[in-house]
């Protein structure tokens, strides 16, 4: 799949933003006044920036509001509802912390749950696609949730953030590894795609001499040769290095910011691989994957 920057930015930033808001909503990092302005502000800024980025992916973004209509069947529509509901419900919690200096544990927990639900709906957009076996597995929502929780804990400055980050790194390695054989396991081949079994079949000539939308969007082979290096780099940056920074440096804004920057770069690399390594079954028709 084509690793479009808009979709990578969208999924990474909303995951991190809603993860942070969830930690705040659960009252795990109680802050009031100016401190709450910074923490809630960061959560809202990340989530909003991510949602804005997602609209750059659209052919007709002026109709984006229509995406709220099909929540009965479409995960993309559910994601739209969940994100708006989470942000609206979190607003009084944030306002109370900032202006009244009072925490709202019940409403906060409810909003926090909605934040995590939003992350799950985002992941389900990818998980639901049977056409992309690497994504079509329970590990995808688990990975997105893991990113949100570990990243949120890091930004909220929680004491257990290093442990959560290391667990995320382990799980990321697991998803890289288990995803590798899934396309073959599902049994999709050129023979099932064309029905021309009973012997051997190979692509002789493509239907067009140039490229097309399908090939640009769903058959992405550039950069896979660096996949092993990039996997290692993403695990180091998203998990190991920020955990080390948090453990070694004295707790404070500088340690959190440095760890967050490293974590964010690692998350972007990991998400790039999430798309670049995902193979769509339509590639079979072209004899490519």
């Amino acid at each position: 799949m084509h690793p479009a920057p808009s979709v990578i930015i969208f999924s990474v930033l909303t995951g991190l933003g809603f993860g942070l808001l969830a930690m705040l909503g659960f009252g795990l990092a109680p802050a009031t006044g100016w401190a709450a302005v910074v923490t809630y502000g960061a959560g809202y800024a990340l989530a909003t920036a991510g949602l804005m980025a997602s609209t750059f992916h659209l052919g007709n973004p002026q109709r984006a509001l229509r995406a709220f209509t099909q929540w009965r069947t479409s995960w993309l529509s559910r994601e739209a509802w969940a994100s708006v509901a989470a942000m609206m419900l979190m607003a009084p919690v944030a306002a109370s912390a900032v202006f009244a200096g009072r925490l709202m544990p019940v409403l906060g927990a409810l909003a926090a749950v909605l934040c995590l639900v939003t992350v799950v709906t985002t992941s389900m957009i990818y998980t639901q696609l049977k056409t992309v076996p690497r994504w079509n597995h329970w590990t995808t929502p688990a990975l997105f949730l893991g990113h949100a929780i570990a990243g949120g804990a890091l930004l909220a400055g929680l004491g257990n953030a290093p442990v959560l980050l290391l667990l995320l790194g382990l799980f990321l390695a697991l998803t890289f590894r288990t995803g590798d054989g899934r396309f073959a396991d599902r049994g999709h081949t050129l023979a099932t795609a064309t029905g021309l079994g009973g012997g051997s079949v190979r692509s002789f000539a493509p239907p067009h001499t140039g490229s097309n939308y399908l090939m640009r969007e769903m058959i992405f082979v550039v950069g896979r040769k660096h996949a092993v290096k990039l996997r290692t780099l993403s695990i180091l940056l998203v998990s190991v290095l920020p955990a080390l920074v948090l453990l070694v440096l004295p707790a404070g804004l500088i340690a959190t910011l440095l760890a967050a920057v490293l974590h964010l770069i690692g998350a972007f690399i990991g998400r790039w691989l999430f798309f670049a390594e995902a193979e769509h079954v339509v590639g079979l028709y072209y004899g490519l994957r």
Binding site: M1, H57, L58, G59, N60, P61, R63, A64, R66, A67, L76, I125, Q128, L129, K130, T131, V132, A193, N212, Y213, L214, E217, M218, H280, V281, V282, Y285
Partner: peptide, 18 residues
């Protein structure tokens, strides 16, 4: 249609083009 392209991703046959 907002042109999100998700339907083209969901189609195994490459029948949809944006």
């Amino acid at each position: 249609c907002i042109g999100c392209g998700l339907c083209a991703w969901a189609c195994p046959y490459g029948a949809r083009e944006l």
